[in-house]
C-alpha cells in the first residue's frame, strides 16, 4: 500500500459521500446520470464477487490467508457496493422526480456489448470470475460516458456535481501513479488490462478536468462549458 493508492481509494470514497451529500442536501439528483450510476453498481457487483471467497474463509475460521490488506479491501468493497446501490436506490425512489432521465439518452448497449466482447477475448484466464473481473475493469473505464454526455447536453454542472466528477475521475488518475510506483518497486508486478483501461478512463476525463480547473481558478460556483 503506497500513498498514491490510499489517496486514490479515499478520493473514490469521497466521491460517493459528495454525491450522497449533494442528493440529500438539495433533495435532487439533477445533472447526475442515472445510467452512469447504474453502470457503477454493475462494475462493483462483477468485480467484488471475491467477497464471497473472503466470507467463506471467515465462516470456516480459515484466517491463514486473511491479511491486513484483505480486511482493508473487504471493508472498502462493502462500502463501495453499499454506496453505489444506495445512490441508485435514491435516484429511483424519493428523488426520481428530479432525475434528468429525459436528457440521459446514452445507449448503454453501446458500452456493455463491446466491454463484454473484449472481456471474453482479452483476459488473464478464461474463468467466470476472471472474465467478470475483466469486464468490470473495461466497463468502469467507459461508465462515465452517459454522465459526460449529460454534462455536455446540460452545458453546466453545479458545484457539488463537478466536485463529484473530479473525485471520481481523479481517483483513477492516482491509480495510474500507483501502478507506475508499484511497477518500479515490486518485482513481477504487471497488469496490462488494468493499466490500459485505467489510462482510457482517465483520458475520458481530460476535457472535464480542464474545465474544472478553469472553474476553480476563476472561483465560480458552477462549471460552465463553452457554448
Amino acid at each position: 500500500m503506497n500513498i498514491f493508492r490510499i489517496s486514490a481509494d479515499l478520493l473514490h470514497l469521497a466521491s460517493f459521500f459528495i454525491l450522497i451529500f449533494k442528493m440529500k442536501a438539495t433533495k435532487s439528483c439533477k445533472g447526475i446520470s442515472f445510467k452512469t450510476q447504474l453502470m457503477y453498481t454493475l462494475v462493483f457487483t462483477c468485480r467484488y464477487l471475491d467477497l464471497f471467497h473472503v466470507l467463506g474463509m471467515m465462516i470456516t475460521f480459515n484466517f491463514a490467508h486473511i491479511t491486513g490488506l484483505t480486511l482493508y479491501n473487504t471493508f472498502m468493497k462493502i462500502l463501495f457496493l453499499a454506496a453505489s446501490y444506495y445512490i441508485v436506490y435514491l435516484m429511483r425512489t424519493e428523488l426520481k422526480s428530479t432525475s434528468d432521465d429525459a436528457r440521459d439518452t446514452f445507449v448503454l448497449w453501446h458500452i456493455l456489448a463491446p466491454c463484454a466482447v473484449l472481456a471474453l477475448i482479452f483476459n488473464a484466464q478464461f474463468t467466470i470470475l476472471e472474465i467478470l473481473w475483466t469486464f468490470s475493469i473495461y466497463l468502469e473505464a467507459v461508465a462515465v460516458m452517459p454522465q459526460l454526455m449529460l454534462l455536455i447536453e446540460t452545458g453546466e454542472a453545479d458545484s457539488l456535481s463537478s466536485h463529484y466528477m473530479f473525485a471520481v475521475g481523479g481517483y483513477r488518475a492516482l491509480y495510474l501513479v500507483n501502478w507506475v510506483y508499484r511497477y518500479a518497486t515490486e518485482p513481477y508486478y504487471s497488469n496490462w488490462i488494468a493499466w490500459i483501461a485505467g489510462f482510457v478512463q482517465t483520458a475520458l476525463f481530460g476535457d472535464f478536468f480542464y474545465y474544472y480547473f478553469v472553474k476553480i481558478m476563476s472561483g465560480d460556483a458552477a462549471l460552465k462549458l463553452p457554448t
Binding site: N73, A124, Q125, E130, W133, A194
Partner: peptide
C-alpha cells in the same frame, strides 16, 4: 500468478 496482479486493488 497472472490472475493475482491487480486483484489486490479496488
Amino acid at each position: 500468478a497472472a490472475t493475482e496482479a491487480g486483484h489486490d486493488e479496488l
